[in-house]
Structures are given as C-alpha cells and as structure tokens.
C-alpha cells in the first residue's frame, strides 16, 4: 500500500453524494437501486459515483444470488496511520537533507 491509494480514497470522498453513499453503506450493504432512491438521482448517475468509490477501493461488490450488493471497504483509509505519517515526513525530510548534502559536497572521493 502506498500513498497513491490514500490519495484515491480522499479524492473519492471529495464529493457530497459519494460521502452520503459511504455513510449509507456504513450501516449495511445495499443495491445500487437502493442508493439511487434517497438522491432522486438516475441509476446511471449513482452508478458513476459508485464506480469512483470502487476504483478507490472503498466499495466492493458482493454477489448475493443474482444480485450485486455494494459493501463498504474501509481498508484504504486505514492508511491514515500515525506512524506511517510520521515516517513519511521523516524520510522525506532526511532525503531532502541528503540531496542538500550531496549538492554542497559533490566530491566525496576519499
């Protein structure tokens, strides 16, 4: 897992309708048609939002007989992890230092 999936997840959540879909799915699975009802949105419009959430890995399709039910998958957001953020900043900072060090000390031959 990298920060790309985190970006995707936050991108997917940067929309009111998708956030509402996520909230609905946090209470249980649903069919796409069930999701369309509260928004008085067309099936196609809701489908598009669902696809974005699926691409971000936040929503999974679960086959139930002939039905497809949508299920919330919170895994991508588990990356909002304190130590990962800590080390992301730390290593980024050290590599910046390394870059500066080699810039001003180019001749390292002993």
């Amino acid at each position: 897992m990298t920060n790309d999936s985190l970006d995707l997840a936050f991108g997917a959540l940067a929309d009111g309708t998708r956030r509402a879909i996520v909230r609905r799915l946090s209470t249980g699975t649903a069919r796409v048609t069930d999701l369309a009802k509260p928004f008085s949105m067309s099936f196609n419009a809701v489908s598009k939002h669902v696809k974005v959430l699926e691409s971000a890995g936040l929503v999974r399709r679960v086959k139930s007989g002939r039905e497809h039910r949508l299920s919330l998958n919170p895994r991508p957001l588990r990356e909002v992890n304190r130590w990962v953020a800590h080390y992301q900043r730390f290593w980024s900072d050290r590599l910046n230092n390394l870059e500066q060090f080699l810039k001003f000390n180019p001749n390292q031959e002993e």
Binding site: R19, V22, L25, P74, L77
Partner: peptide, 12 residues
C-alpha cells in the same frame, strides 16, 4: 472502521 469512515465522511 466502517463507523470511523462514515464519521470521517461526515467531518469533511
């Protein structure tokens, strides 16, 4: 986690 995610969605 599902609840946390829903809460996060609400917060933003």
């Amino acid at each position: 986690w599902k609840q946390g995610l829903a809460n996060l969605a609400k917060t933003v």
